[in-house]
Each structure stands twice: as C-alpha cells, then as structure tokens.
Write a protein that binds this DNA or RNA. Structure first.
Length: 451
RNA sequence: UCCCGGGUAGCUCAGCCGGCAGAGCAGGUGGCUGUUAACCACCCUGUCGGGGGUUCGAAUCCCUCCCCGGGAGCCA
C-alpha cells in the first residue's frame, strides 16, 4: 500500500499536492457538515488532521472511531484552524479496521500501571510511541558510536554452561519436547541464559582488540524495583591494551554520544517528555553532553558522605558497598550530574577486577546518574594469571571450570578493560520515565512474561 | 524476599469512626458546531480483588490469600 509517512508530510515547507496517509485514528470529532479525524502512523509524535465533508462520504465514515485503522487521500492544505499547520482535505477515506466501542485506549490520559496491563496496545499511545522512537534512536547510536571508534560488533552466546559468571542468578535452559526431552542435560551439563557477555567478549578482545556486544541479558533475581528487569539489553565494550582511565573516558564519551544523538534525532519526542514526563529532561541532557563527568575514588566518596552531615539510613563506611541512598546523594546533591566512582574495595567487587598496588582496592568503576543510580558498571580486568587464580581461590571458587578464561592470561595476556551499560536504564535516564518497565515494549519481571 | 501504601463502573478516583454504591471521563442516542482532551441534553454501566469472620446489617471493622505501586536488598 503506497502511503506517505506523516513525519515526511509534516516536514514539508509548504502545503500542496495529493497525499495518502495510513494509520490509526486517535480522535474523531464529527458534526453534521464536517468530520475531523486525527491520524497517527507512528512515524512521529504528531497526528495529522483529515477533514471530510460528511455528506460526501458513505456510512463507513460513521464507523471510524478512536483506534480504527484507516487510509486517507486528499490535498495537503494549510489549516485554517489553530493547532496544526497542515491538514488533509480528504477526497477518499477508507476504513481498514474498525475499533469497536470496547477499545481500551481512551482519548484521555491513562496511568502507566494500567497501560502495562495492555502492553500489546500501549505502543499506540503518545508516551510509548515516543519511548520506542527514542529507544530505537539510542540503539542505532550505540552501533554508530562503536563503529566510529573502530570497535567490532560481536555476538556472544545467549545460552551458557558457565554458571560462574557471578553476575546473578541464572534461568536454566532444558529441552521440553522431542527425543532430547528425557535427557538430563541437553548440553551435557546444566545450562542457563546468559547473565553477561563479558567473559566471552574478553576472549575475543584478546584477538580483535576493541569489541562490543549489545544483546539480551537475563537475571533470575527476585527483584521488584523500578530499575530491574529479568530480561534486559546490555551494551558491553571490551578494550585491549587499555586501563581504567581509558575505560572511564570511553564510558563518558559513549553516554554523551547517546544523549546528543537523541537530542538531534528526536527533538519532538524529547519535548514531549520534557513537558509531560520529566520537567527539565532536555536541559539535563544538553548540560551533560557539554560538560565533563565528575570523578571520585570510592575512598574519597565515602569521605564526602561521612562529612556531608546528611542523615543516612545506613551510615557510610569504608569497606561497605555504597547504598542506593549514598549513590543518589552523590549524583544528585554533591555533583549534580553523572559521577564516576572508581577503585572500590576488592571484597565487594567481582573476582575478575584488576587488583591495585595497595592490595585492597580494585580498578573498578560505577557510573552513577541522578534519578536512576548505577547505569554503568565496569573495570580493568585482572590480566595477571597468578593474581587471578589467587582471587578465585580466596573467594572459594575452583579454578578448573575457568580454564578457558584463565588461558587468555596464560597465553599472550594483555591489560584490558570494559564495562556494561544497562540499556533500559539509559532509556530511563534520557526520557525521565520513572519505571524501567516502561522503557521496553514487553517487560519481563518476576510473575510477568505476558505478551 | 523485606518494609510501607493501595485494590470501588471500561478508565481516573470519591465514599471507609458500619445503615439504599457515587462523580468525571469513556460508551450509546439526539442536538449543535472549522473542530482540536470539542460542546449541550438524556441513557447505560458494579463479584466494592478472592475467601473467611464479627454484626440485625460490612465497600467500610478483624483474619487470611492474591494482585498492583513506592522504597530496600541484589545489580545494569
């Protein structure tokens, strides 16, 4: 079906010509003489208004209600009414799919909680259309950034038999039908869905230099919060011959690139979020895109928290993990923007992180942003075989299952570093959406995997 | 998983110190109008989350389970 996208029509400099649009009616206002139909086709936030002389059309015009799909052809003219620049003087209106009166989406505002229950229809709302357009722009920008920086895009496994990644509880994978159903383990040993592509990315990094993954990630944690999903998308770059400083710089440049890309490509959607979802969303992104991220070491951060005079539920103490309230205080009150906290005590971080010379901290970093908290976690990796084996043993892990991982330290080891970005958390930060479940079309969280 | 707050019409919510279940919006009908969250009039809409208990009587009080939201933990 030949059609003109509303986005293209509205970007024209002047009226004129015959256009055909196809989309869904957002609202219909009908009178004796004329009927106004606002159509949205998802190509942009704005609707286009079609005006029909009621008498000139058949009975199907009366069946066009909110939610119906239709096609309209007519002249694109300057609108005499306020509120829109162009409109379509409809010559032909074809109802394609009627929406009966029980169509759940009303013209007025719905709660996000309700929309989550009808996630199959919520892409048809202003907010979710905008979220999905921004999300798409950000995903494209991820690839654009790494391509521009010479990183190779690699695909790491979704199914894994290494339960040793330590990043969280795994979902198990087994055969449920066919001749394999009866076997104890389809893959010969227990298998699960990946909780991180990092370990495999490190392997390829030790050959191709600079690589990244961008794929689905699964955590079987019983987390019920506004910033956790059971299935989420993670971006994980890994750089060879690089340390924590380069890692932090990459993280900062990367985030700024994403923010600039959204500002440039989705100004209309961002204006919508700024007005209806989070006041100041645009200014916040512009400010961050043009200024440096703050940097502190963990030790300095704990010091800042201790002398802040702030009453925390949990008193900050060196050696303890930063609580959510501490992270929020740092990003929102102390630095008023993104802050990179580095060099955490080794006992509260993963085994693979590079030990500092002080013997008690590791080359780790967390990027904290206002409102969301931790958006990136990364580190320089331990590239010394003996130290890595020592770390594994000291936390009571057997080194044998890690033979392939340790081999990269055994043969031609090199310093390398990387991080993981929670893609939905980035979408959350950009749009100001409060709940991460509203940043992905069909969220998977404990008790919910519908649609 | 823990701590709070909730669950009443299709949606958003009021009613909650026990006494006839309500409003706005949506929907239907009619009217009116180059309208724009259109407007006006009328009409329709209920397992008051489920179960149990107290009571002459429970949406309202008690117990319990389920579900939702916010916060915490885990993390990205």
């Amino acid at each position: 079906m030949k059609r003109n996208r509303i986005r293209d029509i509205l970007s024209q400099t002047q009226a004129g010509g015959i256009v055909t649009v196809a989309g869904w009616a957002r609202t219909v206002r009908s009178g004796k003489g004329v009927t106004f139909i606002e159509i949205n086709d998802g190509s942009c936030l704005a609707n286009i208004q079609a005006v029909a002389e009621t008498a000139a059309h058949d009975a199907s015009l009366g069946k066009i209600s909110t939610g119906a799909s239709l096609r309209v052809s007519g002249r694109l003219v300057d609108s005499p009414g306020a509120g829109q620049r162009f409109e379509i003087a409809a010559d032909e209106i074809a109802l394609i799919g009627a929406a009966p009166p029980d169509y759940p989406l009303q013209k007025k505002r719905h709660s996000f909680e309700f929309l989550r229950e009808i996630a199959h229809l919520r892409p048809r709302t202003n907010t979710f259309g905008a979220v999905l357009r921004v999300r798409s722009a950000m995903a494209q920008a991820v690839h654009e950034f790494f391509r521009n920086h010479g990183f190779l895009y690699i695909h790491t496994p979704i199914i894994t038999t290494s339960d040793c990644e330590g990043a969280g509880e795994m979902f198990s994978v087994s055969a449920s039908g066919g001749e394999a159903a009866g076997t104890a383990h389809f893959f010969g040993k227990p298998a699960g869905l990946t909780v991180s592509g990092q370990l495999e990315a490190e392997l390829v990094c030790m050959a191709l230099g600079d690589v990244y993954t961008f794929g689905p990630t699964f955590r079987a944690e019983n987390s019920n919060t506004s910033r956790h999903l059971s299935e989420f998308w993670m971006v994980e770059p890994e750089m060879a011959f690089a340390g924590l400083d380069e890692d932090a710089r990459l993280a900062e440049d990367f985030l700024k690139h994403l923010f600039r890309a959204v500002l440039a490509e989705c100004p209309e959607d961002m204006a919508f979020f700024d007005k209806w979802v989070f006041n100041g969303a645009i200014e916040r992104l512009e400010k961050i895109a043009s200024s440096g991220f703050s940097r502190v070491t963990y030790t300095e951060a704990v010091g800042l928290l201790e002398k802040s005079g702030e009453k925390f539920e949990f008193a900050p103490a060196w050696g303890a993990d930063l609580q959510s309230e501490h992270e929020r205080y740092l990003a929102e009150r102390v630095f008023g923007g993104p802050v990179i906290v580095t060099d955490y005590p080794k006992d509260i971080k993963a085994f693979y992180m590079k030990l500092n010379d002080d013997g008690r901290t590791v080359r780790a970093m967390d990027v904290l942003v206002p409102g969301v908290g931790e958006i990136i976690g990364g580190s320089q990796r331990e590239d010394d075989l003996e130290k890595l084996e020592g770390r594994l043993r000291s936390i009571g892990l057997d080194t044998a299952p890690y033979w392939w991982y340790l081999d990269t330290r055994r043969y031609g080891s090199a310093p390398h570093a990387g991080f993981g970005l929670g893609f939905e958390r980035a979408v959350q930060f950009v749009t100001g959406m409060q709940n991460i479940r509203d940043t992905i079309p069909f969220p998977r969280v404990p008790r919910h995997a519908d649609f």
